[in-house]
Nucleic acid binder design. Structure first.
Length: 512
RNA sequence: GGCGGCGUAGCUCAGUGGUAGAGCAGGGGAAUCAUAAUCCCUUGGUCGGCGGUUCAAAUCCGUCCGCCGCUACCA
């Protein structure tokens, strides 16, 4: 079955440098994209940057440069981060590109034509720092009588003409969407929060601004620029050349999955489907929100100065160790803590000791006792069948995990097989068989090689570089690394390269 | 205030009606092929408190305590 898989990360807002949270969402999306490619599916994987809005305009002004130049720089930094993390995106979209602007305007026009946009005026307390309006009852009056936003940001009374989107008309249809398609929104905690939010009643949404210029002009009314979220969400369509639905890429719509941080779940689970309904466009199949990272138990923030650049971690621990850690440490969907200690523990125990060492001891036995040549697969004992059976179930097992965005559980499934592999080699003791039954020793090593091949194959999406190395050492050619290829046994007699450690143990430097 | 989540072994968590589980940490043993890695056995919990339903509850209901999230335009 050839099927299409279209997965997206959020487009990241360029008001700050990329950090571990951005990398996390991107790595997760990357794992899914790579997994589907190995499954033989046609994949389109989109990431990019969100570059409009008053905050960006002002940040550029503060930096004393033109907004475009400012966003060029930061967007390039996000792209660099994606490249360092080996994110295998098929397209990197920027909301300042002409193709996006054209597309966002087309979407607006469609929604307007269908009568879902009207003009009015917005007035209220506006906090520039938060870039949002607050209700009177939300404001905090300080000792000096000055009103501030609940976030502490200064507010001012602003009145401006605005276009509104008739969000209030979509409440029922949205609730029906969530009810009829429980898979549409995950994880469950997010789903409940969103449902609860929508049930409270939806107000029409102000979708344009006149107070600044750095945005996509509203078609037919150049005094207005689009509200950043209308602009930003359109990226998922503009990358497919919307509104040209005959374009080759258009076949990827509807998106299979929008992966997002939990903070922006609402925009994706409420506004986005409503916009699409209004435009008469099919809805994405699934929205999944991932949690936040804390660092050494503390919230990551600029003021604490503990914002982690993923590239620094990669420099110290290596790419795959970091990718593995991000997805292994906690259930995908929940919040997680990043600490040196846990980072080192995961690397040393699960990568170096469990997986790396299993591979190394197997390969060195083959190198020393089989002349470095892959032995034949012959008659299997019950123990052999048991281990091989577990390994052969992995592709299907993981496929189910991926569909549910259960990336952490997927890794746990693989590690069960790795632990079983270590138990198997100990129980079979090929180093002892060498003296008593050389043929059986070879059978055991062959079983281990085949098991490791399955493991390395399914782990490719998580740790592409290390698994590439491992598959080379196992004698698996490039065209033999898909899930389909696992069905065919490697021929005996293939010569293996000299084994080399793949996951070095991390030794903490003595504190000086 | 309203809605929701969580509270299970020292730590991180899984487990939604039928004799309490995993990984890590701790203790004992085996082995020595391997990155001093691995394997086997084992200590450890009145499943937040109380009450209820049931032949039977971590699992359902009520209530209380503690922590957290969401409550409109902010990654």
């Amino acid at each position: 079955m050839t099927s299409r898989f279209y997965v997206t990360t959020p487009i990241y807002y360029v008001n700050g440098a990329p950090h571990i949270g951005h990398a996390y969402t991107s790595v997760a999306a990357d794992v899914l994209a790579r997994f589907h490619r190995l499954s033989g599916h046609e994949v389109f994987f989109l990431t990019g940057t969100d570059e409009h809005g008053q905050k960006v305009e002002q940040a550029a002004q503060n930096a004393g440069i033109a907004p475009q130049l400012f966003t060029d720089r930061i967007s390039a930094d996000f792209r660099d981060m994606a490249d360092v993390m080996a994110i295998s995106y098929d397209d990197f979209i920027r909301t300042t590109e002409p193709r996006h602007i054209k597309s966002a305007q087309a979407l607006w026009q469609k929604v307007a034509e269908n009568g879902a946009i009207y003009s009015g005026a917005y007035e209220g307390w506006y906090a520039l720092r938060d870039e949002c309006f607050y209700g009177e009852d939300e404001l905090v009056t300080g000792a000096d009588g000055v009103k501030t936003a609940p976030t502490g940001a200064p507010v001012e009374w602003v009145k401006e003409p605005s276009y509104f989107f008739k969000l209030s008309e979509y409440q029922d249809r949205l609730l029906e969407l969530y009810e009829k398609n429980p898979e549409f929104l995950g994880p469950n905690s997010t789903r409940r929060e969103i449902i609860s939010f929508v049930k409270q009643g939806l107000r029409d949404l102000s979708v344009s601004r006149t107070s600044f210029k750095w945005g996509v002009p509203v078609p037919g009314d150049e005094d207005h620029v689009m509200y950043v979220w209308f602009d930003a969400l359109a990226n998922y369509l503009s990358a497919l050349d919307y509104p040209d639905m005959s374009a080759e890429k258009a076949a990827f719509w509807p998106a299979s999955l929008h992966l997002v941080g939990k903070d922006i779940a609402r925009f994706h689970a409420v506004y986005w489907p409503a916009f699409l309904m209004a435009a008469g466009i099919e809805l994405p199949e699934k929205i999944f929100a991932n949690g936040w990272w804390t660092v050494e138990g503390q919230k990551m923030s600029k003021s604490l100065g503990n914002v982690v650049d993923p590239r620094e971690l990669v420099k110290e621990f290596g790419l795959d160790s970091v990718r593995f850690f991000l997805l292994r440490e906690v259930p995908f969907g929940g919040d997680s803590d990043l600490s040196r200690k846990s980072m080192i523990m995961r690397n040393n125990i699960e990568l170096a000791n469990d997986l790396g060492n299993l591979c190394q001891r197997t390969l060195s036995l083959v190198a020393r006792n089989c002349g470095g040549v892959v032995p034949e697969r012959r008659v299997l004992t019950d123990e052999d069948k048991q281990l091989l059976g577990q390994a052969s179930l992995l592709p299907q097992l993981l496929s189910d995990r991926m569909a549910a965005c259960a990336l952490t559980d997927a890794l746990e499934d693989v590690w069960k097989v790795i632990r079983a592999g270590n138990a198997y080699i100990d129980h079979q003791a090929p180093w002892a068989l060498r003296k008593t039954d050389e043929e059986r020793m070879k059978d055991v090593l062959r079983v281990l090689l085949d098991t490791l091949r399955s493991i390395a194959t399914v782990l490719q999406p998580f740790m592409p570089q290390s698994m590439e190395k491992m598959l080379v050492q196992l004698g698996v050619n490039e065209n033999e690394r898909s899930f389909a290829a696992l069905e065919v046994l490697l021929p005996a007699g293939r010569s293996l390269p000299a084994p080399q450690g793949i996951f070095p143990r991390y030794v903490e430097q003595e504190a000086g």
